[in-house]
Design a protein around this nucleic acid. Structure first.
Lengths: 249, 249
DNA sequence: CTGCGGCCTTGACATGGATCAACAGCGAAT
DNA sequence: ATTCGCTGTTGATCCATGTCAAGGCCGCAG
C-alpha cells in the first residue's frame, strides 16, 4: 500500500480548521495567511489505516485536525517502537525531505489539513516567519523525543506508565476540572499494545502496571479506557519527573 | 556552577574553523557569510568540564570545531541518560529558546565556534537560507533521536553496543580504509560509563558485551579504546539494522 | 440467544541485565 | 619504587520484565 491508495477527501470550507494559526502561521502576515489558506486541503482516514509508509515519497505536509495518529519504526524481526504520538494540532512532514522516515498510522479516525509540499516549501523560502515557526515546532518535537529517550533508557515500567498517563492527562483538552484543582478525567486513546510500543514494554507488563497503579489509588479506571487522576502531583511523583508539576522557575 | 564560571577563550583567527560552511551557512550568500564571520568567536573547554547546565540562560549558539561533547538529562535520584553526542561540525543551541534544556559536558578537550544569539537570531529573521539550514539540521537531530528511541526501547544490550560501534565507526573521519574496503579503525571517545549512559545500560553490561563482541570476532580491541572493525556488514548485522549497510533504494 | 474475534487480565516460569563485590591495569603524584 | 585514583573486567547473585499460556469481558454478526 502506498500513498496513492489512500482515499482522499477534500473539503472546501475552512472555518472548521482550528489548526492553521497554531501550527503553521502563528506569525504570518495577512498575505501569507491567504496564500496558505488557498493551498490547503483536507484528507480523512479511518482508524487503523496506515496513512504513510516509511520510505514513501511525500508530496505534502499536514497538521492533525482531529483524531490521533502514531509514528512507528520497525526492526526487521518485527520489534516495533513508537517514536511519536500525533495529537490534534501536531505537524506531520519534513520540509526539504523527499520521503517519509516512519510509518504513520491512525489509531482513531483522523482528519488532516494538508499543504502540497512544493508550494509550501517555496513559501518557506520567501517568508522567514514560516521557516522559523517550523524550526520552533521541530525543536519542540526534538525536546519531546529526548525526554522520551530518558524514559526509555532509565525509567522503570511503573514510571513509564505514570509518565504516559501524565502526558495524556495534560494534553487532553477535554479534561474536566471540578473547580480549580479537581481530578483530571480522560480517555486512553491507545490500546495496551500501542502503549507498550510507545514505552518499550510488552503489553502484559503495561496491563500489570496499570492494574498496580489502580490498586494503589494513583489512577481510577472506569472500564478499560476511561481514566480519572485524583491527584496529578501524586501521578507526577510516580512518573519520576520533577515533583513541582512542571513548574519552571 | 553556571556559564559565567566557565573560562572563556576567544580566538581571533578563523581560517582554522572548518565548520561554518557545513553547519550554519551552507547556502549563505557572500554578505551573510561575511556577517557571520564577523560575529563569530571561539571558546575552548577542558575534558570533563560541563560547558552548560540544564536551565542556564544561553546567550550564544555554537558549532563543535574539535573534540567531543555530550548532552545528558538526569533524574532526581541520579539516573542519567545521554540524549545526544556532539561530534565536530555538530550544532549546539536552540534559536528562539532562552535557556538550555540539557547539560552539555566535554568528554575530551573541546573547541567551539560561537555566535552571540541575539544577532544570530536577527539574521535568521532576515535570511530564510539560514533558518532553513537550521531547520534541516534540527530535522537531522530529530531523526537521530528517534533512531535512538528504537535502540533504547527495543534492542538488546549486544545490539546496542554494536549500534554504537557502527555509528562511531561511520562518523569517525580518521578511519583507515586499506584500499577500498578494508577494516575500519577508530578510537572510542567515551568511557564505559558514558557509553552506558548513552545506551541505557550499566557500565558492567557494557564491558561484558564489548568482551563478548571481541570474543566473537566482531571487533578487535587494542588496549581499551582502540577498535578495529574487520567487517562492517557483520557489525551492522549484529546491530539489528538493515543488513544493506544503510543503503537506501 | 450464541458464537466469534478483539482486547485485556492474570498466573507461572524464564532470563537478560542490574546489582554487589573483588580485583587488574595504568598513569600521575609522592 | 610505591601509592593512589580512575577506568575497566569479571564473577555471583537477584530481580524486573519478558515469555508462554489460560481465560475473562464485550461488542458485533448471524
Amino acid at each position: 500500500m502506498t500513498l496513492k491508495d489512500i482515499p482522499l477527501q477534500t473539503h472546501v470550507s475552512c472555518g472548521d480548521c482550528p489548526i492553521r494559526h497554531r501550527a503553521v502561521c502563528a506569525r504570518c502576515e495577512t498575505d501569507e495567511l491567504v496564500e496558505l489558506e488557498q493551498m490547503k486541503y483536507y484528507r480523512s482516514y479511518e482508524a487503523g489505516q496506515t496513512l504513510i509508509w516509511s520510505g514513501d515519497r511525500m508530496d505534502f505536509v499536514a497538521s492533525v485536525v482531529t483524531g490521533i495518529a502514531t509514528l512507528t519504526q520497525t526492526l526487521e524481526d518485527g520489534r516495533r517502537q513508537m517514536v511519536g504520538l500525533l495529537l490534534p494540532s501536531d505537524f506531520v512532514g519534513r520540509p526539504g525531505r523527499p520521503t517519509a522516515a516512519y510509518d504513520v498510522t491512525a489509531t482513531t479516525d483522523v482528519v488532516m489539513c494538508c499543504f502540497r509540499k512544493k508550494p509550501f516549501e517555496d513559501m518557506m523560502g520567501r517568508t522567514p516567519h514560516v521557516a522559523q515557526r517550523l524550526l520552533e515546532m521541530t525543536l519542540d518535537e526534538l525536546d519531546a523525543a529526548r525526554e522520551w529517550m530518558l524514559l526509555l533508557g532509565r525509567k522503570t515500567a511503573r514510571e513509564k506508565i505514570a509518565s504516559l498517563m501524565a502526558i495524556l492527562a495534560r494534553r487532553d483538552a477535554t479534561l474536566k476540572l471540578k473547580g480549580g484543582r479537581g481530578p483530571l478525567v480522560f480517555d486512553l486513546p491507545l490500546t495496551r499494545e500501542a502503549m507498550a510500543d510507545y514505552l518499550g514494554l510488552t503489553l502484559e507488563t503495561v496491563s500489570r502496571q496499570i492494574s498496580a497503579l489502580r490498586k494503589d489509588g494513583v489512577i481510577v479506571l472506569d472500564g478499560k479506557r476511561h481514566v480519572t487522576v485524583p491527584d496529578l502531583n501524586r501521578l507526577l511523583q510516580e512518573a519520576g519527573d520533577d515533583s513541582d508539576g512542571g513548574f519552571i522557575g
